[in-house]
Simulated assay, not measured.
Amino acid sequence: MQTATLFDLPAIQTGPQGAPATTPAKKARRPRKVHASVPLTPSTTVPDELIRDADWVVVNSSGGKDSQAMLSYVVRRAKALGMLDKVIVIHADLGDIEWGGTKALAEEQARLVGVRRFEVVQAKGADLLGRVLIRFGKLKAKAEREAIEAGLDPAAVKVAPAWPSSSARWCTSDMKRGPIWTLFTKLAAELSHLGRPVRILNCMGQRAAESAPRAKLAEVEIDRSASNGKRHVTVWRPIHGWSDAEVWREIERSGLPYHPAYDWGMRRLSCSFCVLGCEADVVLAARLRPQKAHEYAAMEVQVAADFKHGLSMAEIIVRAAELEAEHGPLRRPPAGTAMAGFVGKSRTAMYLGRRDLLRERLTLAS
């Protein structure tokens, strides 16, 4: 029998009885209609004008360093304009795949800068691992169906990887973007009395230094996919051009607490095991969260595909075990370790003092 894949099926094959078996033409997708009122380009790219023009200023917070640096910066500008009441912080709760305490930290950061409205959104249904399994089932059924239509053996098909990847970031659309757009609908309804589309300024902490694809993103653009006749969404990436050092200097200046995962050595936050994370990060995560790493490895077996292209979670676990054997268990690093590499030990010590004072004041106020 021939082997078929989702991406390598011939258009015409000889069927079991010698008759030509053609793969049915796929239905063309209808282009999504965007409401005529949605502009093609933003009316301004000037930060203060963006805030003034917006009805809502939505700050997306993963609880990570880029999010909190952006939050500090945006709130500082909004306060100067006397428009802090427009600012809302949104956290997309990813459940157990997040680092512990992430949601609580994102809320604390919002409270500490004076934002009164903190919203948590969460996708309905299965968690990430559950969604990987569901996606695998759908991909497998599709591959088998197409093999049968092409006269091939369905038992021999190769199924496309079910894990998220840089080219298939369905985890972002399913677990973040979708729930956030649902909240946008609610925000637009709250201001429906305006009698016009509600203007939402959607602030994202994406930076050009993170990757080549993010470097190509515009600092300000109209999100036509998220916009409709009731809301116009403008995406603003306030720290798009910032370096790592600038991010840490903003955190140091603000006194906002950052997640301890950075002190352990993680370069990025949100998902403990991000398919886009570097090898060092996922190996470190496997040492810090061994039980969750084994859950990912078990899912690799079920869907017959590696967690990362060319690097399985099983191999990641082996590398983590080798480091444990060579260096012993991880020891908790001193608070401020990550920051000290960018602003120095002296300024980090002062930051820790301000951070603790801010937390004390918040506790007393509440």
Rank of each mutant, 00 (worst) to 15 (best):
A4Q: 09
D8A: 12
D8I: 02
L9V: 13
A11Q: 10
Q13D: 11
K26W: 06
K27A: 15
K27F: 10
A28Y: 03
R29F: 11
S43F: 01
T44D: 00
T45D: 12
V46K: 12
V58D: 04
V59S: 07
G63Y: 08
Q68I: 14
A69Y: 11
L71P: 05
V74H: 09
A78K: 00
A80T: 12
G82Q: 06
M83L: 15
L84E: 14
D85F: 04
I88W: 04
V89P: 00
V89M: 03
V89T: 06
I90N: 00
I90F: 10
A92M: 07
L105C: 07
A110C: 03
V113T: 03
V115P: 00
F118A: 05
V120P: 01
A123G: 10
A123H: 04
K124V: 06
G125P: 13
D127M: 05
L128N: 02
G130H: 04
L133Y: 09
I134T: 15
I134P: 04
K138D: 14
E146C: 01
D153R: 09
S165I: 11
S165C: 07
S167C: 14
C171E: 08
M175T: 07
K176R: 13
P179M: 00
F184Q: 02
T185C: 05
K186F: 06
L187K: 11
A188V: 01
P197A: 14
P197L: 12
R199K: 15
L201S: 03
M204E: 06
R207M: 10
A209W: 02
A209S: 13
A209I: 09
E210V: 10
E210C: 10
S211W: 08
A212Q: 15
K216D: 08
A218I: 06
A218W: 10
E221D: 04
D223T: 01
D223K: 05
R224S: 12
N228M: 01
G229M: 03
V235I: 15
W236C: 02
P238H: 09
I239G: 02
I239R: 00
H240D: 03
S243K: 06
E246N: 04
R249L: 09
G255E: 02
Y258P: 03
H259P: 08
P260Q: 01
Y262N: 10
D263A: 06
W264K: 06
L269P: 09
C271N: 05
S272E: 13
F273A: 08
C274N: 07
C274L: 11
C278E: 15
E279A: 12
A280H: 14
D281E: 04
V283E: 02
L284W: 12
A285H: 02
R289D: 13
R289E: 05
R289I: 01
E295H: 07
E295Y: 07
G310Q: 02
G310V: 12
M313L: 10
A314N: 15
E315M: 08
I316G: 10
E322S: 07
L323N: 01
H327D: 14
H327T: 05
R332Y: 09
T337A: 14
T337K: 13
F342E: 01
K345C: 06
S346I: 15
S346N: 13
S346T: 15
M350S: 13
M350P: 00
Y351W: 14
Y351C: 08
L352Y: 01
L352S: 04
G353L: 10
R355W: 08
L358H: 04
R359T: 05
R359C: 13
R361G: 08
R361E: 10
A365W: 06
